[in-house]
Design a protein around this nucleic acid. Structure first.
Lengths: 291, 291
DNA sequence: GTTCCGCATGAATCGATAG
DNA sequence: ACTATCGATTCATGCGGAA
């Protein structure tokens, strides 16, 4: 018997549409709000000084719909304006904490091929913030899902550990390292850090996404399991939804620009024909704007 | 005729000793203050909630002694505790702006060999902030001094990229200064970005520095010329001073731990015999604590 | 002299235990 | 309950002695 994977695209304003989602129903919120993706005009041109006030009603809803074990990942980077970095992201972090969120971590996305350009007073901006917020200190994290190959140094060094090395347990130097040498035998992968190296997708797609697929993929794998629910309240070109679907997670996206909504629907239906057919049926839903 | 390069180490507390420096006399301040609750043995151990109040009197002096064309670079990273990142660095940035500083840029130092460890709720912390502050919107910046030249060295690196390196860290590049290796092909040199890749210097040196020499070196080259004046109000093991001297910049360091002061003096005198002799004489001064 | 390998050492963070 | 201390965990690097 097939199970149904639900991919839902809601056409409308997140400030309104989030209200229809149930309490504690989302496992992961992954999103790039306006300013991160330079689409601020679609939400009426929010000024930097108004940004926090504009965002808080949305994050209040996000706090409501997220499961206690869930995670909220916010991809954002303040822009430089008139020679200075804006401070609204810093103020947003402080305001979200005051709203009840825990600021668990700040990941760095190092964009290998960042936007070109040259200015007299600054270099190109090659990184963005990925702010992790949680409702509770205990949340779901599946670290093994994102392990990476071990560095080259290990190839030469570790394979030559003798048997006595493995038995040795001299913790007298305090490091505790020698005690666990046997753990390292046959180890070929390690846990990553909080710095992510990814290229922006330069590719030949007909539309440009704010971030490469690898970015939501990493966080979806890290914070959800199959059949969990992923939400992107600023779906844009739908990268988060597509990755969620490919990884067999339920997904909900909200998008205010009708052209994007149509694009997402078309894209998802196309891929549906290619993938997963043997595995599940898919249900693609479009809700109407509520006003 | 020889010119004199002045390398001055002041033994004392920056909160007091900075007062003896002249207004508008410093071209670059590069420093790594003790982080909150770190280095409790050598330094006092400032609590996170007191950090901003502790730092502001110092930065007020820094604002006074810095030239209008000068730059202040602050290396800092908040710690994680009890599941959350502290917010005092964010609050410090906001407070410094209120004090009159411009927050020009935030560089990321990606520490390739970060501290090991494993926890259920987070990965290893592999980056630190390098916050750039200025007094005025027009400041000295010598971008060409940090361009990364293409040479045998770079080509060599390009070839040596191992397969695992490419899988686990596609941004691996030689110098570490955030350049996409593939962009180097057919170019003489390129400008870096605001992401720096450097390993920490650990290992068996007789003393351990908080940051590798390449870190102050990069900023000294970027923001000063020869015979400019560099200040480090938390000199520590003296890395900033030594690099300044090697790059033929005047330098002033303030350090509260007498053992470090002696260490810096000894180190500088040793190197004096080896380097620069044909170029200049050096004057190493020790001021006394003023109380 | 090269290369190889043992080893110490990091601005870490969490959970448990002790006062 | 709240703070101070301690053990456990982990990975990349450079130094120095050995082969």
């Amino acid at each position: 018997m097939n199970e149904t994977l639900r991919i839902q695209i809601i056409y409308g304003d997140s400030r309104e549409e989030l209200k229809q989602l149930a309490d504690n129903s989302i496992d992961l919120i992954f999103t790039s709000p306006p300013y991160a993706d330079r689409r601020v005009h679609t939400y009426g041109g929010v000024k930097p000084e108004d940004y926090v006030a504009w965002f808080l009603p949305i994050s209040e809803q996000l706090l409501r719909v997220l499961k206690p074990t869930g995670t909220f990942v916010l991809n954002i980077k303040e822009k430089a304006e008139n020679g200075e970095r804006s401070t609204y992201v810093l103020e947003l972090i402080l305001a979200l904490r005051k709203q009840g969120w825990l600021w668990t971590e700040e990941f760095v996305w190092h964009k290998k091929n960042c936007y070109p350009g040259k200015w007299p007073n600054r270099f190109r901006d090659a990184w963005e913030r990925l702010l992790q917020f949680n409702k509770a200190k205990k949340f779901n994290m599946y670290q093994d899902a994102v392990k990476v190959p071990i560095g080259d140094w290990a190839k030469d060094r570790l394979k030559k550990l003798s048997e006595t090395d493995q038995i040795r347990d001299n913790a007298r130097n305090g490091s505790g390292f020698g005690k666990n040498v046997s753990n390292w035998v046959d180890r070929d992968s390690v846990y990553p850090t909080n710095v992510l190296h990814l290229a922006t997708e330069c590719g030949n797609k007909n539309h440009s996404a704010a971030f490469p697929e690898a970015l939501p993929e990493w966080f979806i794998k890290l914070f959800t399991q199959e059949k969990d629910v992923v939400l992107d309240p600023f779906a844009g070109s739908g990268t988060t939804l597509q990755v969620a679907k490919r990884l067999y997670r339920h997904a909900i996206g909200i998008e205010i620009v009708p052209e994007y909504v149509e694009m997402i629907k078309a894209e998802l239906e196309t891929k549906e024909l290619q993938l997963f057919e043997s595995r599940a049926n898919y249900e693609i839903t479009q809700s109407q704007r509520s006003d």
